[in-house]
Amino acid sequence: MKFDGTDLYAALIHELKNDLGLLSMTIDGIPRQGETEHDATVDAAQLLCQSVVDRLQQALLIYRTIDQPIRPAIDAWSPQDAVHEIRDRAAALARGRIRVEAALTPDVPEIWFFDRDLVEMALINAIHNSLAHARSTLRIEASMTDGCLALTVRDDSPGYPQHILASAAANVPCRSKGTGLGLQFSRLIAHSHDNQGRRGELRLHNDQGAVFCLLLP
C-alpha cells in the first residue's frame, strides 16, 4: 500500500484509536480495590483514555469532510433509546463522580429520523466537556423545539466562556483548544441533517451551567 502524506496521518490516527480502544478495555479489567486513591486514579485513566478515543474518532471524521461533505445515513430511530444509550454511556464514564440524569418530554415522538451514530458522537463529545467541568450533575434531555427534535446535554458547570458563545452565535468556527474543535464537529453534524431544506442546528447557551443542544429537523 502506498500513502501520500495525509492518508498516512489518517491511517496512523486510525491505528492509534484502535490501540487506545484496547487500552481502554484493559483498564476496564483492572479490579477495584475499594481504596479511593487507587480507584480514582484508574477511573481518571479510563476517562482520559475514552476521551482520547472519542476525539480521535472525531478527528478522522473531520479529516474526511475535507474531501467530501458529511453524508448522514438517515433512518428511523427511537429518541428514547438514543437518550438511554447516551445516559448509560455517560454514567459509565462518570463512575459515580457526577450524577447522570435523563429525561424525555411527553411530546417527543416514538421515532425520529436522524443518523444515530453521528448524533451520538456529537452528544458524547458534549458529555466529555460536561464531565470535565460539571460540579455534580449532568442531564440528557429530549424535547421538541420549533418542530425539531432537540437533544440537550446540560450541566451545572460555570458555563461556556463568552468567546465560545459568541462564535457559536456568529456561526464561525472557533479554533481554540479541544472544546472548539469538538463544537465545530458537532455543528457539522447538525448541519448535515436536512429535511426538505430545513437544516439542523447546534445551539449553545448558559442556564445555571452549560447547555448544549442539537436541533434535528
Binding site: 484509536k17 484502535n18 480502544g21 478495555m25 475514552q50 474518532q57 454511556r89 451514530d117
Partner: peptide, 8 residues
C-alpha cells in the same frame, strides 16, 4: 463502530 463501550 470500533472501538465501542460495553454500555453502548
Amino acid at each position: 463502530i470500533k472501538p465501542f463501550s460495553p454500555e453502548i
